[in-house]
Amino acid sequence: MSLKRELDDTYLDDHEWLNQIMNLYGEELTRIAYLYLKEWNLAEDAVQETFVKCFQKRAQFRGDSSQKTWIYTILTNTCKDFLKSAFYKKIVFLGSPHQKSFPATESAENLAIIREREYLICQCVLALPVKYREVIILFYYNSFTIKEISNMLRISEAAVRVRLNRGRGKLEKIFTQGGNLDEW
């Protein structure tokens, strides 16, 4: 078997695997990337980058953690690289990065209040510094365990707990201030 053929066969196996992980995690990863980067185009780029890295580094996956944790680790690192990049820092967000329009269905007063609280908490979470935001998202949004987050972010479990508590504290503070984001 020629080298090219051999490489192509391996490539086809990997291609099948790639399709599977894209179907499984594509949407979820894009959302998490958005929660990191607050910009859909950047989130899509980060996810593309993540899948390309996964494909290239598949052989390096040792199975120490679950495949999902491994992929999320790559995503979080990629998002952080984006955040550190000069390109990201130069981006001027025109208007709020967040969706401001509330779904205008059955506008009962209570429902509106609840939705407002939900909107507020989401906005508060997105406004948190990255190191608190990521643990809050991974813990509350993705339901990862503290141990998994610790592996993913390569920090101790204690550090994860501390960041979670501090993140919650900051969220509480903003709630007691009536949700005034300007005072953050």
């Binding site: 291609h15 594509g26 959302r31 899509e44 390309v52 969706q99 779904p103 939900e118 809050i136 509350y140």
Partner: peptide
Amino acid sequence: LKNLKEAMDKIFLKGNHFSEVHKKIIIRRI
């Protein structure tokens, strides 16, 4: 916070953000 996922998905992350187009782009890059 317990309903963070639901709230996020309903408000900020509403809709489908990863389509076949994105898959094709990734495959082309690879």
